[in-house]
Amino acid sequence: MIEAAMIWNEPNNKSHWDPEIDPDWRLFSEMAIAAGQAIRAEHPTLPRVLGGISPIDPAFIRNLAARGVLDHVDVVAVHGFPLDWNLWQIHEWPAKIDEIRAVTNLPIWVSEVGISTFGAEEVQVWGLNRTAELLIGEVPKIHWYSLYDLPRAWEATTRHREAEGSSYYRHFYMGLLREDGTPKPALEEFAKYTPEMGLCQWFHFEDHRLDDAVAWMKRLGVKYLRTGLSWADSFRPNALAWFDRQMEALADFDVTVTFCFTPEHRGIAPHHTSAPLVKEEFAEFCASMIRRYAGKGAVAPEAKLLEAL
């Protein structure tokens, strides 16, 4: 059910990790090492992926390598959105991958890449085709972000929200499907690149789109997927029932599961981007999810159903 475990998401992006609390990423490094060790203790062969970095920054990878983090992960991941947020052009993708290859011998995955339809849906079609041309065969895993547009009633996970202007609103138009589930022109193009290209789709707690998403992914020929299990959500009522439902629905795919988001009451600051008060608590959350969904003690579907009832 779980193909790989990703430790955090975009740790060098202040929308996901607070650099005022941890300006040199020492606390992040200690937490990531603890999580990597905990995952390895539960599963001796499951690949551990360093949370996809955004921006693509070799100096950040060198910093984590010097702190020992790369000794406790098996893959380095990067995120790139050159037509929306990055200050480089789409044809630079191979050069960006080479920048990271120059500072690590670990495999490199592109765990998020996408094009918004904020300006025009035709731009996404062109960008998808060009991205596939540049990245298929260049890296072993490509997770296209995303299947669905973000519902306008929800908030995008950014630091400054609407104050970011158009950069913020682009978050709501990254899907191959519109918010109402109708296809955009790029959907048909995407099907040409599966199974070589996978998807990244975040599911919110008790997400109403889950079953429809599974049906669409099977229709598109998707074989692998990246999603998340939120440490913060684990403190909600009925959290395990939702996690079970999500993971069971995704059982036919090779899933890279991302562990991230600090519970407000367990952070140095009360925010999901905060370094935790106790790094071992995040590590134990990772271990418990591996035990449940990938380890020797993984809960059988019938047992999970009985527990949910």
Rank of each mutant, 00 (worst) to 15 (best):
Y173F: 14
V222T: 01
S230M: 00
G165M: 03
Y169N: 08
L176Q: 12
A186I: 07
T182M: 13
T158V: 13
R236M: 07
T182K: 13
Y169P: 06
A163T: 14
F172T: 08
W202Y: 05
V214W: 01
M197Q: 07
W231S: 00
W216K: 06
R219E: 02
G198C: 05
A232L: 03
D233L: 01
E164P: 12
G221M: 06
M217L: 02
Q201F: 08
L177F: 09
D212Y: 10
G175V: 07
T182G: 06
E188H: 13
K192D: 08
P195W: 12
L229N: 02
F203C: 03
R226M: 05
H204W: 08
E189A: 15
W231G: 00
L220D: 00
A191H: 07
R161L: 15
A163G: 07
E164V: 05
W231T: 00
E196A: 15
Y169T: 12
Y224T: 01
P185M: 10
T158Y: 12
F203I: 04
Y173T: 14
D207Q: 09
F205I: 07
R226Y: 00
A215K: 13
T157D: 09
Y193H: 15
L210E: 02
L176D: 10
M217S: 05
D207C: 13
A215P: 00
S167Y: 12
R161S: 13
L210P: 04
H204M: 11
S234F: 04
L199S: 06
W202C: 03
K184C: 13
T194S: 10
H204Q: 09
F205Y: 15
R226K: 08
F235D: 00
K184A: 09
L199N: 02
G228R: 02
L210D: 07
